[in-house]
Amino acid sequence: MATVAADHTTYEAAFDAAVAADERIEPRDWMPDAYRASLVRQMAQHAHSEIIGMQPEANWITRAPSLRRKAILMAKVQDEAGHGLYLYSAAETLGTGREELLDKLHSGRQKYSSIFNYPTLTWADVGAIGWLVDGAAITNQVPLCRCSYGPYARAMVRICKEESFHQRQGYELLLALSKGTPAQHAMAQDAVDRWWWPSLMMFGPPDDESAHSEQSMAWKIKRHSNDELRQRFVDICVPQAEALGLTLPDPDLKWNEERGQHDFGAIDWTEFWDVLKGNGPCNEQRISQRRRAHEEGAWVREAAAAYAAKHAQKHGLKHGEATA
């Protein structure tokens, strides 16, 4: 037993040294249980957000107003499914399974980003999601490319490339609307008015109320605090909104010469916690659709498994080796 304890201390010291030296932790390396659990939670939530996040945009695929926009939107929703796949695979390197994670999503034991509980009411929402929601996601995710856990960091490098492409497309969509007819301009402004505050909430609770932040930063999973990233995002968005010819719905938003940053108004944290608890406009709808797709697809997955098993047997393999 004494040897185990000694080994544990040695392992922990090696882990701490690796993190301190900005080395990557890999799946076969020793890691603290809490580090593993924290990563599984964050990566699963990230993967779930990609999957649930398909819904508000897919809502407009069949109504996209031009064939070019329709193709762009379809490609984007397809990318999101792909991002979900990368992230589930990355999470699986920590000893969990996609099925288990999906089960936790469907039963409400794991969360997804609260932003996707808002409805897409007009075509301009597709642009606002691209510009603001993907923009906020990128601000959050670029530092994750340097995250201490190797598989997560590598997934983020691939994902961020595609996300920044989506963000530019969303911006360009809004620009076309803003410079279009008065009705199109009004549609764009209305969408920005509705998505601005929820986008700021994507950075999570304020630093003094963020349960996981301190530990995640110590482990170099996170590199910056929620408030720091939120500020960075606001500073990026203000000139972009100006270039778009659209306003941001915050009377307190103004440049602070002293800080060299923008001051902005108070976030409605009651709404944030409400949405997080499941009481947002679309929580019920989003999770129901996901569950329904999964349940209605059960017979398809069973068929694929049965077919794979039969054909593995035909080739002289035992059941279970089929997917190995």
Binding site: M54, M74, A75, V77, G84, G297
Partner: peptide, 21 residues
């Protein structure tokens, strides 16, 4: 395109969207 978000497995979300595109 109507399948987006409704497919039986994630891989089919990708495949059906790919064919649609």
């Amino acid at each position: 395109g109507e399948w987006a978000g409704h497919a039986p497995v994630l891989e089919e979300e990708v495949a059906l969207a790919n064919i649609a595109l």
